[in-house]
């Protein structure tokens, strides 16, 4: 075998091997996705065809001889043979033209393909496949799913450790709420979750030293000695801080409904503004809420 072919095979194999190795990065490989498969097939075809076609012509440089009838003209001493078209090339050119005309007139005439139609189908297929899969997940698996949502959607603000440190200006999700935030709510009131708690919380339910005491108490998870001013709060949030439907949320700990509410409505508070994340589907919201709740479980 000629050395050239050996080289061709080595180069093609190296390129394809490298491409194949990159698939190792991907959690689910080709994922059964036809688009992935076609892209890889296209890449493979590209390397193989180019290498072997070029080798064909290089072989001709090595073993063939120039021949044919020269044209009368010559430009700056460059001559020109009157050789016929290379057969393979001519056939392929004709073939692609015929294919193009077919595609355009019979295969997919003007309105035969709709990318939005294709999209709707894709979404439907994927959604129904996954709905089945996660319909009944709970517990740790739900938390895992939530983590994966968190890593894509929330990290930009709350960070990898979910501590939303100062530079990031977002809430620390490892604790229910900070003193700073409680104080802010008491002083400014809050009405982010209109659909769940239509009345909102009015400003100025406490003042002076009470605010500090309340803040400490609430941020501490309602443990230890109750400040006297808590009575006002208990009116809505309940004595144990567990809240009441339509009146006030649970401030003693995380609860799923509260987190989903924040995803649906966003939140403007002491730290800043959290955007509405309602493009998540209900299961994803449930999952990410489970994940957030799991963060402070150990304590």
């Amino acid at each position: 075998m000629n050395k050239l072919y050996l080289w061709g095979i080595i180069i093609a194999a190296a390129m394809l091997g490298a491409t194949y190795a990159t698939l190792g990065y991907l959690k689910n490989g080709l994922n059964g996705d036809i688009i992935n498969i076609l892209a890889i097939a296209g890449a493979a075809a590209l390397v193989i065809i180019t290498i072997f076609v070029v080798i064909k012509y290089v072989r001709q440089m090595q073993v063939d001889q120039a021949s044919g009838e020269l044209a009368d003209e010559s430009w700056d001493n460059i001559g020109e043979y009157k050789n016929p078209l290379p057969f393979g090339w001519a056939i392929m050119f004709l073939g692609t033209m015929v294919w193009g005309i077919w595609y355009w007139t019979i295969g997919y005439p003007v309105n035969a393909f709709s990318q939005i139609g294709q999209y709707n189908k894709e979404v439907k297929t994927l959604n129904s496949a996954f709905e089945k899969k996660y319909a009944n997940i709970k517990g740790d698996e739900l938390v895992n799913m939530g983590e994966s949502v968190y890593l894509v959607e929330c990290v930009a603000c709350h960070g990898l450790n979910a501590d939303g440190n100062n530079e990031k200006d977002a809430a620390d999700l490892n604790q229910r709420i900070s003193e700073k935030s409680v104080k802010y709510v008491i002083n400014h009131g809050s009405n982010n979750l209109k659909s769940a708690y239509p009345g909102g919380m009015p400003a100025g339910m406490a003042s002076g030293a009470d605010v500090d005491k309340l803040a400490k108490y609430v941020a501490g998870g309602l443990k230890g000695e109750k400040p006297a001013a808590w009575a006002t709060c208990a009116g809505c949030h309940g004595d144990n801080g567990k809240g009441q439907p339509f009146v006030a949320p649970d401030i003693a700990g995380w609860n799923q409904k509260f987190i989903v509410n924040i995803l649906d409505n966003g939140k403007k508070g002491a730290i800043g503004k959290m955007p509405v994340m309602d493009r998540l589907n209900p299961k994803q919201k449930e999952a990410v809420a489970a994940y957030v709740m799991s963060l402070s479980e150990g304590e």
């Binding site: 530079e167 200006d169 800043g272 503004k273 959290m274 509405v276 994340m277």
Partner: peptide
């Protein structure tokens, strides 16, 4: 504009 805020962009 749907999922980032003024403050976030500033930082």
């Amino acid at each position: 504009g749907n999922y980032r805020t003024t403050q976030w962009h500033e930082n």
